[in-house]
Design a protein around this nucleic acid. Structure first.
Length: 547
RNA sequence: GCGCCUGUAGCUCAGUUGGAUAGAGCAUCGGCCUCCGAAGCCGAGGGUCGGAGGUUCGAAUCCUCUCAGGCGCACCA
């Protein structure tokens, strides 16, 4: 929406430029805003103020020249100058009803933008395969998945990737834990170490592992236990994600990168970014913005996690993505600088790389903190939360905050089917319109899915037009949300739209004695329903027709 | 000590990336169902935008300093 107005203004300026009224120079990008107060029009721009230094004239004088040309556009009702030089633009009613017609026509595609030809990879969750997903992972999953949907709507070609940390000590410990439990099942007395995983799921895996050994008549080994356990864990994780409605396109195993790690280190050596010190091999990241240099190969010959992460990101970039997004827990924020440094060392432009940090979730029950600890086995898993509060409320709660703010998640509040739970507020709006349309059909109103431009001309009241204007903002929200990679903006928009509709509904009779107005308003309400639906779908939240 | 994030209404948080009189929800108080869903609506109260300077036509937003909280500063992953 805003883009269209921006074009309108750009055309006005350009025509003045070719007529010699304005200095023939490139201008700063035009900023179009929706003013807070209606008296300032449907849209406003500060272009005149930005042009002042270039034109060497007073902003208000420039504004006069601009408004003359903007007013000439047939879509413009009037155009005013205000304050220090704001230009306020009012659009014609016919423009807005025309836009409503477009929304109805597009239906589920309203808010989706044409492909921009750019490929973006988003890596998220990437939980260690050593336990089921917990509530912290859930936030990353909700934000990551919603971000992907926002990016898709904005025209990106999106790949969702899960990185599997299946190398290193943690999965060795996982294998050991399973092996110990297997022996225990066979009657041995065992003792779990401090670093072993103690959740009940380990016993389930051990049982399955024993069965697999029996079936294949093979002997247990640390490697077999580890590999079996990792595969079993991935099965559990995929199940948890499926219950949450999250699917990945690609699953990248850390262990499969082994050969690439050597390549990457060799390349870094060739480029002169590597040094040997204290028996270890280091990457000189300090010169590239990191706090200090980092070890790639330990003195004992093992490679660090950082080394495989370099190879991992090198592979990502080599796949030709235009943008790469990593979603990490906020406790990893210190890690960003070294990854960027490594990218630069490899000769890549690290501006294609961005990291979104997901802050901690404090799980509460009735205001009191719930203890979590992965190894002790008494953590609250995603599955438990989903069983208790459901996927919709869970997703909505995680998308109500910007991701880099800490979040208190109260199980009892999320569970409440009451007004204090905002997810129902938005869903209720959708259900209410569904029922309204059904009611209208009972009363014999004609309901068509296609826009009826003749009918829509009846929408002339301020309330009708305001609702259309609010619908039109959806496009802008998607674009903005994708640009800054903040899906929570969609959540806020939907709450506002739902609020606007509820208010409209209480004030205005939709199904009335006037068949034309009834028909027109039903089309408007249908459009609200469409936008609520399109928005909730982006958040991964369902749109019930009855509640 | 260094770095990142966060300080906005009693509480939980938005704030269109510098714009016009700072906004929602919850909570509190007062209204609205003989009529399309009251999981709703209308109204009221409540603010030195943590603090102090600075940049300019204009600052919650940008810069510097400062205070408070969270999280990181591994040859762990």
């Amino acid at each position: 929406m805003r883009v269209r107005v921006r074009e309108l203004i750009a055309v006005a300026h350009a025509s003045g430029r070719s007529d010699g009224i304005f200095v023939d120079r490139d201008i700063p990008s035009i900023i179009v805003e929706k003013p807070k107060s209606e008296e300032f029009g449907d849209f406003s721009t500060n272009l005149a103020m930005l042009l002042a230094p270039i034109e060497k004239k007073k902003p208000r004088d420039i504004a006069v020249l601009l408004t003359e040309r903007i007013s000439a556009d047939e879509r413009v009702e009037k155009c005013e100058i205000a304050g220090p030089g704001f230009i306020n633009i009012f659009l014609k009613e016919s423009y807005w009803t025309g836009l409503l017609s477009e929304i109805i026509e597009l239906g589920p595609d309203f808010g989706k933008h044409e492909s921009n030809g750019k490929r973006v990879q988003v890596e998220f969750v990437s939980a260690n395969p050593t336990g089921p997903l917990h509530i912290g992972h859930a936030r990353g999953a909700a934000v990551g998945d919603a971000l992907c949907r926002v990016l898709e709507a904005a025209g990106f070609d999106v790949t969702r990737e899960f990185y599997i940390n299946d190398a290193g000590m943690q999965v060795v410990r996982l294998g050991e834990s399973v092996e110990l439990r297997r022996r225990e099942l066979n009657g041995e007395k065992i003792e779990l170490g401090e670093n072993h995983y103690k959740g009940d799921y380990i016993i389930d895996i051990a049982r399955a592992y024993q069965k697999a050994l029996d079936d294949s008549k093979s002997d247990p080994s640390p490697e077999a236990a580890r590999d079996f356990a990792v595969q079993a864990m991935l099965g559990i994780i995929k199940g948890d994600l499926a219950a949450f409605g999250v699917e990945f396109d690609t699953w990248q195993s850390e262990r499969d990168l082994d050969a690439k790690i050597i390549d990457a280190i060799d390349e870094l050596k060739d480029k002169g970014h590597v040094k040997n010190e204290d028996g270890a091999v280091w990457l000189k990241t300090e010169a590239l913005g990191d706090d200090k240099d980092r070890v790639l190969e330990k003195a004992n010959g093992e490679r660090t996690y950082f080394a495989s992460d370099i190879a991992y990101h090198r592979e990502k970039i080599r796949q030709g993505f235009d943008q790469i997004v990593d979603i990490w827990g906020a406790d990893h924020h210190g890690y960003e600088a070294r990854v960027r440094a490594a990218m630069q060392a490899l000769g890549f432009d690290d501006s294609l790389f961005s990291v979104i940090f997901i802050q901690m979730v404090s799980l509460l029950r009735d205001g009191k903190p719930v203890q979590m600890g992965k190894r002790s086995g008494d953590f609250v898993s995603l599955k438990q939360v989903l069983d208790e509060v459901g996927s919709d409320a869970c997703r909505f709660f995680f998308l109500m905050r910007k991701s880099d703010a800490q979040l208190d998640f109260d199980l009892e509040l999320a569970k409440k089917e009451a007004s204090e739970n905002p997810v129902y507020y938005v869903q209720y709006c959708h259900a209410r319109i569904c029922s309204l349309i059904a009611h209208a059909a009972d009363k014999g109103a004609v309901i068509s899915k296609a826009p009826n431009d003749q009918l829509l001309k009846n929408l002339v009241s301020r309330d009708d037009l305001d609702l259309i204007k609010r619908l039109s903002l959806f496009e802008d929200v998607i674009i903005k949300s994708s640009e800054v990679m903040e899906p929570h903006r969609v959540t806020y928009y939907l709450q506002e739209l739902a609020g606007a509709f509820h208010s409209y509904y209480n004030k205005n009779r939709v199904v009335s004695d006037d068949p034309d107005l009834t028909g027109a308003r039903l089309q408007l309400c249908g459009a609200v329903k469409t936008v609520i639906r399109n928005g909730l779908t982006i958040l991964g939240v369902s749109t019930p027709e009855k509640m």
